[in-house]
């Protein structure tokens, strides 16, 4: 079936390439609102940030051009490299922790039973809460003397509850908080996608004697492939540029153990008032995020927009 499907997909991609569909494509005018919105809120700021990255500016008066100074500085700034490392670790851990959880919960929640509906609506509650409220709550929970950390710390290798103060503990804590906050969102994506999978596939598998695990592995997972890519892009790029929770829960500490690159940017801009330097970090982040999503899309075949339902 797979072989047949891919041949057919290939065939159709070629059809589209020949332009047989082009007559029905909407005109360029339709793009205008989106293009305007993107231009005003992303394109122009991005350009201005690029200009700003070649200047020295403390937020007062006129930015003064200083050539490549900021760019050279970023290369030799150990703090930025350290933050980049922390960011990458944080990003990977977020993906590794959140994807399986979100996938399993989403698929489970896709079932129509009442108990699943009730439990999943409770589980999706964190989606409705404000980031700051979540982070402050967790900050208090992580208090080693009176918080949750005091109670569970001894069981997970922190006899004095010193989780947020430990280099690895703090990273783990932040990953857990972010997962708690965002797994519901990704689970929602998977729930929706899993409900789209035609029941006939499972019926056929059942007739062939497939176990539950086999059904999940051979039907659900392949059918969710595009959702996995979407969710992964959102998750990876999202956690690369995310720092609100970290800022409140650990403030980048202990020391700089959880100081991710976006927070470094924020500090450069709004604590040190080095707008030019912060712009360099911002551009690096933008470039990394763009490259990352392009890579994922490229190597996952997502860009070809092949339907996972073809071949049925």
């Amino acid at each position: 079936m797979t072989a047949v499907a891919s041949t057919r997909r290939g065939g159709r991609a070629t059809d589209a390439g020949r332009g047989s569909d082009q007559a029905s494509r909407p005109g360029a005018l339709w793009v205008l609102p989106a293009a305007l919105f993107f231009g005003v809120f992303a394109g122009i700021p991005l350009l201005l940030t690029a200009v700003l990255s070649f200047t020295q500016w403390n937020g007062l008066g006129t930015p003064a051009f200083n050539g490549l100074h900021n760019w050279r500085h970023v290369l030799s700034d150990g703090a930025v490299w350290d933050s980049l490392r922390v960011s990458l670790v944080f990003m990977v851990l977020c993906w590794v922790v959140q994807t399986p959880l979100a996938l399993l919960i989403g698929v489970w929640a896709a079932g129509r039973e009442l108990n699943r509906a009730v439990l999943s609506s409770i589980f999706f509650l964190p989606l409705l809460m404000s980031t700051a409220a979540i982070a402050i709550t967790w900050r208090v929970l992580l208090d080693p003397n009176f918080g949750l950390a005091a109670t569970i710390g001894p069981y997970i290798g922190f006899p004095d509850g010193n989780i947020a103060g430990d280099q690895h503990g703090a990273v783990a804590a932040v990953v857990v908080v972010v997962a708690w906050q965002f797994v519901p969102f990704h689970a929602l994506l998977y729930q929706g996608a899993a409900r789209q999978i035609p029941k006939m596939l499972y019926d056929a598998a059942l007739i062939d004697g497939a176990t539950r695990f086999q059904q999940f592995w051979k039907i659900t997972l392949p059918q969710l492939r595009n959702t996995i890519v979407t969710s992964s892009v959102l998750m990876l790029v999202g956690s690369l540029t995310y720092f609100e929770t970290i800022l409140i829960v650990t403030d980048g500490g202990p020391g700089t153990a959880t100081m991710v690159l976006p927070q470094r940017m924020y500090i450069s801009a709004f604590q040190s008032f080095q707008m030019g330097y912060a712009s360099v970090i911002a551009l690096v982040l933008a470039a990394l995020g763009t490259a990352l999503s392009m890579l994922i899309v490229r190597f996952s075949g997502f860009g070809k927009m092949r339907s996972t339902l073809e071949g049925i």
Partner: peptide, 24 residues
Amino acid sequence: RTFLSAAGAAGIAGLTAPLLSACG
């Protein structure tokens, strides 16, 4: 400023952050 402001900072994430103050 430590944490209340942190709450506020939530809105600023993203690459346009340094530019906000350009709109002063």
